[in-house]
Nucleic acid binder design. Sequence first.
DNA 1: TCAAAGGTAGGAATATTTTCGTACGAAACA
DNA 2: TGTTTCGTACGAAAATATTCCTACCTTTGA
Lengths: 129, 129
Amino acid sequence: MNETEQNKQLEPTKSELEILQVLWEKGPSTVRMVNDELLKQKDVNYTTTLKLMQIMADKNILNRDESQMKHIYSVAEEEQRTKSHLLDKFVDSMYKGSASKLVMQLLGNKKTSDKELQEIKEILKKMEE
Amino acid sequence: MNETEQNKQLEPTKSELEILQVLWEKGPSTVRMVNDELLKQKDVNYTTTLKLMQIMADKNILNRDESQMKHIYSVAEEEQRTKSHLLDKFVDSMYKGSASKLVMQLLGNKKTSDKELQEIKEILKKMEE
DNA sequence: TCAAAGGTAGGAATATTTTCGTACGAAACA
DNA sequence: TGTTTCGTACGAAAATATTCCTACCTTTGA
């Protein structure tokens, strides 16, 4: 593995992201636990989830504890680091890297509630201190 | 086409998004113009871009003016509407719909410059008025 | 003890996305 | 006019991502 490959942040696919979200929410889990969560959102076969998680372990997106028969999977990179990277990519590609443009859109967005807006203001206020 | 299909917002794929970005930036364009822009970022064959744009026209992501030999493609839905939809999806999937969590991450992010930060504050200040 | 339930592994089938070869028509121009 | 350049259309190949079948092992419990 050369340096480029090492440093390249693997982009999770859509399905992989769904699995990451479960693990972020629930912490280290077995395939069964993850699959049960996914079943709440969509129809998915157990072995499909198993396979995906195996692939993710191969790619080092997940770590796997094989000491028990029921393997325990956990995320390899901390949640914030991964999310931060994905957010960066999003801002870069959608707003040419301008975070303020994104915030502007967010604020103009009907779906962003007044409560959210209030919270955003609070955050900024705190940063001033 | 039933109502569900009609209303379903077609998610552009990664490559389709690249093309949308060019069209957002440059306005209605021929395949040649779009391809020339893409070539600045990556290696891509003319017919590949043509094919993608044809597919996008089929999906009604793009409109096509065929009155000239060099067809002119333009985005079918306004830029802000599309971006807003994609941003919503992103916030939903990554931050469980919490816009303030996203902003928090943005502010904690090294890549968000002081200048950006300043601009974000300006926006909020203006909203108060 | 043996059948049922639940686990992993791996390959193959599908579905989706991306790329490009080829054919063929129109325009440009020597 | 002929040939080169530039355009579209279309199908198929290639690359990726997703799904699931099958085999086989371990645990559970009647």
